[in-house]
Amino acid sequence: MRHAQFLARTVMVQNNNVEEACRLLNRVLGKEEIFDQFRRTRFYEKPFQVRRRVNFEKCKAIYNEDMNRKIQFVLRKNRTEPFPGCS
């Protein structure tokens, strides 16, 4: 399905600040992995390369999940206001 022109993937420029708008657009597209997919489909990715990439991504996701859990565990707080003076 085609998306509406000038509604999808669009950023409005505020106060003539073009660079900020560009950066925001790039950041959103990078986060949504649109640029990654674009770069990946420039050339044919052989099946062994797909397997290697997918396996690597799986390992990375597991590592990140575990590491986040550890960080949350170390940073846990047991007081009514967790970070006094920071709000």
Partner: peptide
Amino acid sequence: NIVSITDNTPVSWNP
């Protein structure tokens, strides 16, 4: 005077 910036890069997930 640029009002908006749109990205129109053709990206397909089953090219």
